[in-house]
Nucleic acid binder design. Structure first.
Ligand code: MN
Ligand code: MN
Ligand code: ZN
Ligand code: ZN
Lengths: 139, 139
DNA sequence: CCTCTAGCCAACAACAATTGTTGATGAAAT
DNA sequence: ATTTCATCAACAATTGTTGTTGGCTAGAGG
């Protein structure tokens, strides 16, 4: 569900109204998707179009969108939750210095964790985090 | 450097004195290594032997140990920095619910990120995060 | 058109993990 | 003996986030 039509449906299906705020936050987060914005970053941009939009509401709507499975929140140790809009399986590249995040679409063969290492854990997903420095931070 | 002899040297080489607090924190973090304790967790245990040891000092000493490369701090989105004592290359298994962390020693073939996806990033390391649920949280 | 309510707002408070600060005290190094 | 470092208690401050409250408004349902 990455198109606005679908989201409208999904909102209503959950008994949530389709408001200008929800619409705006959705569109902003889609547009910014590639940079994996934080809630603050979404708010910063959103307020250019709707100056009264509160940060609190942005947090709330991002939570809702996550509940609808239209976005996913990730925490890669950059100091804040970041939002990921790409529904396909992928991995991430993180800048050690500024926290920039980029999607990485590479095939990583699934790794089987041997039972003696699992220690009772059930493994649901496996993600790869690539760490390094972005072009900007390297100069 | 995982033995106390080496650490004593390393401390002194940096102009840091070898104190009972530094010794204790080091020994605790080594002993707890497998659970990847947070600073709070280290403090909780340490105060059993030295009740006056302040949390502030634990934070400071953990920072120093990280500076000496005897431990590594990792943030896997569990809400706090966790400390890893195993110097060998390895990966991590994280419980979605309680945040428990386990080491995973499996060979993961290095993945080459194609330049058009790197977008100017330099990739320094690649780590795999396995997410799931621990035995306890699953019951 | 009227009513009811969800959603939003501002304006806070609270939170948790972490870092900063300060002045006093004690121990180690010189 | 003197200087310096380390630690302590006791706070304050910071950051990202969530909770709360009372008032206002727009829209869904009648
Ligand atoms: Mn992503
Ligand atoms: Mn580890
Ligand atoms: Zn950067
Ligand atoms: Zn668990």
């Amino acid at each position: 569900m990455t198109n606005w039509q679908g989201i409208e449906e999904a909102f209503r299906a959950k008994g949530l109204r389709v408001t200008p705020q929800r619409s705006l936050v959705f569109r902003i987060v889609q547009k910014m998707g590639a940079e994996h914005p934080s809630a603050e970053a979404v708010h910063l941009w959103a307020t250019r179009h709707m100056p009264t939009l509160s940060l609190r509401t942005v947090y709330a709507i991002l939570d809702e969108l996550e509940g609808l499975n239209t976005i996913r929140s990730i925490d890669l140790g950059t100091g804040s939750k970041r939002f990921c809009v790409n529904p396909h399986l992928h991995h991430h590249l993180v800048c050690d210095r500024c926290g920039k995040i980029k999607d990485v679409f590479v095939d990583v063969p699934p790794v089987e964790v041997p039972p003696e290492q699992r220690r009772g854990f059930s493994v649901r997903q496996q993600e790869v985090v690539f760490r390094g420095q972005c072009a900007y931070c390297r100069s």
